[in-house]
Nucleic acid binder design. Structure first.
Lengths: 241, 241
DNA sequence: CTCAGTTTTTGAATCATATTCATAATCCGC
DNA sequence: GCGGATTATGAATATGATTCAAAAACTGAG
């Protein structure tokens, strides 16, 4: 049945069109002014058609976040394929985050909104499920790196669970994304490059866990060199700067 | 003119009533179902009256966050009055955060929403201004502790600005609040007490800055003792557990 | 190619709320 | 008790999400 397949493909293509156009509209007019009828209009479809793809506006936003999360996970997967010490791979996770956000500046704003009770509750259960599934690898990959380090004897959990180690890094990253994207928050703080700072704190935190080999977080040249190396060896095509 | 003063007081009281009732409604039905007409109804006023106090729903939400931030700042001020080493005071900031969130579980959810472009853009400029002003002391106090440590010779900034040190702690705290309040995020992670973990990472990060005296973050007994001490000496009336 | 049945698309109608504003009520000083 | 100012009211308006009955497009058998 090629007909059925063609239809499915066309349906998927139309969905993509809606998603892309939604991103464009958010970029242009802000999340605040995104409206379902405008999305439909711009794609030359009726609103009803849009609703065949997304149960609600929140559903659509969640689909956008899910797309981003998949890209994010793909970046993390590259890290797992990178032949380096667990410590460097863990650091590379931080670098991945930094690069990801530079390429998807709207993502954390959107994600922050989507994981809010307000939006979470208004999206369809299926969509929530899909998002959580897309998210899963992110945690698994980071967890795997920690376990790897433990197995190699580079890291002693010292009473923590591997997950707790992950959560420490994760907090740092999410916190920084939030500060950067919270309106008016960082404006009169003397913070030069928040994401480079985040990378530095990543190293500080790993040192705090006595994760070997230790790294001198104050050594700017070494930090920049490592970031650069990771950009080249792991994210070559994604590093514009 | 006592009449004028009375009127002002009554106006302020009514505003407080609206705010309190809004909190109650959010607690009961969730942010999602908060509606201006319901708030007015429950307070036995017409919607129009509600709008004399708040330019918009977003404005009202921002007012709620501002109230919380003031309480938060009051807690930080207690820390500045606590006679202890800068390092312990810095740690006490983390503890303050933990206690604050336990007492105001909705705050970070709400704040997260309010600092979103969506809401930020829809609130009145005056309200935004007030919120930023209420926020100011939070940054100033933490910054002051860092500068104090530097002055005493307990901390070498090592190329960072004082603000950057603050931002490190801040990221950690905000990140953890976000994870804890992001629906479905931490659910299947083996994380026991996220806020205690945050406190531990606070110590780890301060160690990472070589902020003297160092503290063994893996020493659970010492960590719990210090937290307990801070609860007793600084936040005695606020620590239920 | 045609037609009945099925699926898909459409957009006007519905619904829910935020917000406004003309009118009514209240207050104030005299 | 009065006239003018201030404040409260809630019906009317506006916006935008969502629904759904009707129209259009498609399907496959004859």
């Amino acid at each position: 049945m090629s007909t059925k397949e063609r239809k499915q493909r066309e349906f998927a293509e139309r969905e993509q069109r809606f998603l892309d156009q939604s991103r464009e509209l958010i970029r242009r007019d802000g999340l605040l002014n995104l409206s379902m009828s405008r999305i439909a209009d711009e794609c030359d479809y009726a609103v009803g058609t849009l609703y065949q793809h997304f149960a609600s506006k929140e559903d659509l936003l969640m689909a956008l976040v899910t797309e981003d999360v998949r890209i994010h996970a793909e970046m993390f997967e590259r890290v797992t394929r990178w032949p380096a010490s667990p410590r460097d791979r863990m650091f590379a996770i931080g670098v991945a985050d930094m690069i990801f956000v530079r390429r998807h500046p709207e993502h954390f704003r959107l994600a922050q909104y989507v994981f809010t009770e307000v939006v979470w509750g208004a999206a369809s259960a299926a969509r929530r499920q899909t998002l959580l599934e897309a998210n899963q690898p992110l945690g698994d990959i980071v967890n795997g790196i920690v376990l790897d380090a433990v197995a190699r004897g580079d890291l002693d959990l010292n009473g923590l669970t591997a997950e707790e180690v992950c959560v420490g890094c994760w907090s740092l990253a999410i916190g920084m994304h939030n500060l950067v994207h919270a309106e008016g928050m960082l404006q009169d703080f003397k913070v030069r490059d928040p994401y480079r700072l985040m990378c530095r704190y990543f190293q500080t935190q790993l040192n705090g866990h006595h994760w070997r080999p230790l790294f001198d977080a104050g050594d700017d040249a070494a930090l920049d060199a490592l970031i650069k190396r990771i950009c080249n060896e792991v994210f070559n095509d994604l590093c514009t700067q």
